[in-house]
């Protein structure tokens, strides 16, 4: 195992350019899983980000919250203002692994890992976060909703590092995070759903689904249905819209049928009392 240990972001970017294929390493909670069994990974080179203090922690500006690429779930849980402004961030953070993982795992690592079952990504997406990438050639910012291009594939180039995640300060009057796992803790999401509603505007609803497509996904068809106030009498009234947005599969953790049914039921029941078009159950 070859580990490079840059001490500044500039040095890190240079190393990325010099060592094509080097693998960035933050909390390593994804990278080291089943390590003894993954012998081929032992031969690769790693870029340890832990010395890059400029990437640590969370910062507030007048119109946004920035999570540095080394910001952990624990950092977010420690920040009282986050809990009041973006309550879904701690909601999700508390459901990632347990304390050990929460204190090492980073939000950026969660994004870069690209799992369709990630728990950090959907809440960031529902708050319309964007991702800033840096390389020896400069930096660029992309909206998280268009970051993924396919299963574990993204717009990030091999020599780019995620340096920060920005969340715009926009008021929501409704926000909910659902994680359906096979048990109450230490579970990988089988069906995930995040809903936010902006306090004002005409396109107020954001719906993000996880574990029901190749990537974490915004659901534009479902959002349009809600934005137009379509009456909903039963979960089944959401099925067609979800079918346009997501494509669940059978896998080792669940079934396509289960995922489809539960997704619609979760959204339907979450809307009770907050959605004008929703019928009483």
């Amino acid at each position: 195992m070859n580990v490079l240990m840059p001490t500044s972001l500039a040095e890190a970017c240079t190393l990325c350019a010099k060592h094509p294929g080097v693998i960035p390493m933050a909390g390593a909670t994804d990278l080291l899983v089943h390590w003894p069994l993954r012998q081929a990974e032992h031969d690769k080179s790693y870029l340890d980000l832990s010395k890059l203090s400029e990437l640590r922690g969370v910062r507030w500006t007048a119109d946004s919250l920035t999570l540095g690429a080394l910001a952990t779930y624990w950092d977010v849980l420690q920040d009282a203002r986050i809990a009041s402004v973006f309550p879904l961030l701690p909601d999700a953070a508390r459901q990632v692994g347990a304390i050990q993982i929460q204190s090492r795992g980073t939000w950026a690592g969660n994004i870069a890992n690209g799992s369709p079952a990630a728990d950090g990504v959907p809440v960031l997406m529902a708050y319309d976060a964007s991702v800033t990438l840096a390389s020896a050639h400069g930096t660029r910012t992309v909206p998280l909703r268009s970051y993924y291009t396919g299963y574990r594939a993204s717009v990030r180039k091999p020599d780019e590092l995620i340096v920060s995640i920005e969340i715009p300060l926009v008021a929501c009057d409704f926000a909910v995070f659902h994680k359906v796992g096979a048990r109450k803790a230490q579970a990988i999401t089988k069906v995930g759903l995040v809903i936010t509603r902006l306090a004002s505007g005409s396109q107020r609803w954001r719906v993000v689904a996880s574990s029901v497509a190749a990537t974490i996904k915004r659901c534009p068809t479902v959002e349009a249905l809600l934005n137009t106030g379509t009456p909903l009498k039963a979960p089944a009234d959401l099925s067609a819209a979800f079918a346009a947005d997501v494509a669940p599969i059978d896998d080792i953790r669940s079934t396509a049928d289960y995922r489809r049914t539960v997704l619609a039921r979760l959204l339907f029941h979450s809307l009770q009392g907050v959605y004008d078009g929703a019928a009483a159950p």
Partner: peptide, 16 residues
């Protein structure tokens, strides 16, 4: 056995 990991073979936690 296909789900031969503690991630995918689901024993209860104290929360369960």
């Amino acid at each position: 056995m296909h789900n031969n990991t503690l991630t995918n073979y689901i024993i209860p936690t104290s929360d369960d």
